[in-house]
Nucleic acid binder design. Structure first.
Lengths: 118, 118
DNA sequence: TCAAGTCATAAGTATATGCTAATATGCTAA
DNA sequence: TTAGCATATTAGCATATACTTATGACTTGA
């Protein structure tokens, strides 16, 4: 009866996944950006993102060769509140600010990323 | 940085622990009551309660030979909201209603359980 | 003091988890 | 089509977790 709820909590029960969620709370990011910031390998990032996606916490969209991830727009209110209460790592925020997606991923700054409709 | 938060989520990331929390949301209960309701052994219940206690989610108090556990009165608002949003297992609620602590644990019904001051 | 009941702890086991390295897949641009 | 990059998947490993049984510690009442 509580297994689905427990699974939701387990998804949030990893520091790396929480950090990914907070990073995506600053702005959308592609896998290579996350892998550059986080102290784990790219496959590890991919695996975390897969789990977050399966849990319905993030969505993905392709931008040229890059898979961008973003927080799901209609996150459950519980999750929104939790994330709002957690502090953003200043270093993470600075990194995402100084390394714009255009530069980091070679996107032309003129073209705004095409976001999924939902 | 997020390890403490992740740990909080991991504590909630187990169906048995969630069920214990929901049971204690109905009324305080002793270990043997919880072990009677749950499909796990008494040591398993004790181990879960220890973890819940370390996480600051429950407190314990002795009543004769029984160790009663209750939700910590000043639970973080996050947790309160999560618990409020989760459904109570009807079977669990019925069990705690029909098996009063007095009968289940041999307490005289005249004496209200002495609760801790906090 | 002692027997019975209650709970906690210890030891052992099976499964889940998070990571890495290696490899496969897929997209883009020439 | 093909080269090169970005991402996903696989296999393997170390650790964490949840459970059991066995046992120890504590409380109560006779």
């Amino acid at each position: 009866m509580y297994e689905d709820w427990a699974e939701q909590f387990r998804v949030l029960g990893d520091a790396t996944r929480l950090r990914i969620l907070m990073l995506l709370g600053i702005r959308d990011a592609c896998v290579c950006e996350l892998a550059a910031v986080l102290p784990v390998s790219q496959p590890a990032v991919s695996q975390h993102l897969r789990r977050l996606k399966q849990a319905g916490l993030v969505v993905e969209y392709r931008q040229k060769s890059w898979m961008f991830y973003r927080l799901r727009p209609d996150l459950p209110e519980h999750v929104r509140r939790w994330l709002a209460d957690m502090p953003v790592d200043p270093g993470d925020a600075a990194w995402l600010r100084t390394h714009h997606a255009e530069a980091a991923c070679g996107l032309a700054s003129a073209s705004d990323p095409v976001r999924p409709t939902n």
